[in-house]
Design a protein around this nucleic acid. Structure first.
Lengths: 338, 338
DNA sequence: ATATTTTGCTTAACCGATTAACCGCTTAAA
DNA sequence: TTTAAGCGGTTAATCGGTTAAGCAAAATAT
């Protein structure tokens, strides 16, 4: 493989001049520049990445995600990665994916990748309440952006979806259809996105003069089975809800399953809403009314902000992307409208 | 950030000794080793990645996938990546994701990443018939593994699913249920996986003494809409099929949609099968009978083989992972049996 | 007792780029 | 006319590791 020395020799200049030409720095005459570029083309020269990174930066963005714990295998994550990868590449950065192992937890891996200079900054998925990673990394002066909701005093900038407004809009949609007993299926309360979703739900209820019924709010998990269990719990109550708002599409799929298994018709008997608009949401039976979260755009925004941080520009501490109501056929007026 | 020099100074040895201790090479006394390790711990020393990579290898595996063209956003891809990432990390490698742009096509980007030493080897997705990438990269002595089916004379090792056997098994399943008019929805014929799937279908038909009816074989695209269109075409025929085997779950979803839209009941009126077993396949209505492709395992195998190639071990030219029939409720005996 | 090998470590070259410092020459300013 | 500034390059230090070569002391073989 040709090195910068080979190019310099062929163009009859020093390696410094070659470097200046290739980086557009320094002052080089047109004639010399042409000779250098010709030599580069003739040799098919490609600057060595490691050598360059050793003196400058790695131009790499890190994502640490557990493969097994299904984070990486999640279709929603995939779309975020797609947006991230495109925006990063456009800015001259690449995306590095690493999986934590038994011997090296997520935070440690984050730290190692950054401190070894393998990445210039990190994107944090699955931000928890009291997550130690933002402070850990920010204290070590490692550029970091987290995906999630702004919980009190997170030590790094955050980009996420405006789930509060989204949940409010979704709840309003159900209220306008005539629903009064609207259940909420939330994700575990230690995930940062749990709180704003709940807040939006409550806001919409109050705005419509409805009171929150604690028995209608269920803290489910994140899997479809969790959605099934939560729905079964709701159905077992004396007065089951006429509508269910789930904090994720996956939970909504579970709820739909449970309803179908108990002989109810989703939409006609009980309305179900989700949040995410996964590709499959349009293809369930019936197609799911949900909130569309712009995941590609989230990825692109994450990339822009993180690169901004890396290149020492200021970035907003909190950026919330709007979600949009997508009405399909899993919601309808309650059967015995009353 | 502490460097190897700082560690050497603190442990009162040369940098070479520190390097030997950290890499387990050379001969170092226990006492010295202990001093070095203590210094490493006290300083929180982390070897610089770029410096190490400059002398050795990048220990990085590259994946070039277009974000927009949805490859990266595909849930099936996500699972392959998860397996890839885990196996790579376990072997001390990381995964680098880059997106081609308007100005740099996939093959060029592959080449640049490898020739600049940013990656040690590459995984090729979406292998086409007459794909130029395997030869391009292999001729440049770049370790490369492709995902797909073994087409004649591919220049690099291949790992994929045994779709031929899978399609045969799927077709047999439909035949055993009593179907005689079985349609096939294939992916575009320039994708390497198209041919073996077709071959398996034909083999099963012949083994059962059935003749292939060309009007029942439709070359669809890859999207769900393509599946819808293909199914509509089949339904418009004089004698529509009683069963449809789609080469991917996504096409099968489209077929199910088209059937529902035309008033048919999937399973009872027309059986539908897919291939992939996407997470959502279990959650459609009715749940889809399909072939389970072990995508995580594919990812892990890809990683192992590529790392083998990088570390100059021999790897098998073709590795096909078996797929497994998953019977759910989208297939049943034909209505008017016989 | 001497020769040979092994052990444990150091020295220094090297990987391939970037970049500060410098230098001779030309041109503009004082 | 003298001085300063600008141009177009070169030289060499540097980034932070790895590793071949070498060397003194200790262990083993003859």
């Amino acid at each position: 493989m040709a090195t910068i020395k080979d190019v310099a020799r062929r163009a009859q200049v020093s390696t410094a001049t070659v470097s200046y030409v290739l980086n557009g720095t320094g002052t080089v005459s047109d004639a010399t520049r042409a000779r250098v570029l010709a030599a580069v083309a003739e040799l098919g020269y490609q600057p060595n990445y490691s050598a360059r990174a050793l003196r400058t930066r790695s131009h790499t963005i890190g994502v640490v995600a557990p493969g097994i714990a299904s984070r990486l295998a999640d279709p929603a994550t995939a779309e975020i990665l797609a947006g991230l990868s495109e925006a990063a590449t456009a800015a001259g950065y690449c995306l590095l994916i690493a999986a934590p192992t038994d011997s090296e937890a997520e935070g440690e891996l984050d730290l190692r990748l950054a401190r070894s200079g393998r990445v210039d900054g990190l994107i944090l998925f699955d931000l928890h309440i009291d997550d130690e990673r933002p402070a850990l990394l920010t204290n070590a002066h490692i550029p970091t952006i987290a995906i999630g909701a702004p919980t009190n005093g997170v030590a790094c900038p955050i980009v996420g979806f405006d789930l509060r407004a989204g949940a409010e809009q979704a709840t309003q949609h159900l209220i306008r259809l005539g629903h009064r007993r609207i259940a909420l299926l939330t994700v575990p309360s230690d995930l940062s996105i749990s709180e704003p979703f709940y807040a939006g739900y409550v806001t919409a209820l109050h705005a419509a003069g409805l009171r929150r019924d604690a028995t209608l709010v269920i803290e489910a998990g994140t899997s479809e089975d969790d959605g099934v269990a939560a729905m079964q719990e709701l159905l077992a109550a004396r007065t089951p809800p006429t509508a269910v708002l789930a904090a994720t599409d996956t939970l909504a799929f579970g709820a739909m399953h449970a309803l179908r298994d108990s002989g109810k018709v989703v939409g006609q008997d009980v309305s179900v809403m989700g949040c995410d608009d996964l590709p499959l949401a349009a293809h369930t039976y019936p197609p799911l009314t949900t909130l569309r979260a712009p995941r590609r755009e989230l990825g692109a925004t994450l990339a822009r902000h993180l690169i901004g941080l890396i290149e020492r520009r200021t970035v907003p501490p909190v950026t919330l992307l709007p979600v949009r109501l997508i009405v399909r056929h899993s919601t309808a007026a309650p059967r015995a409208a009353g």
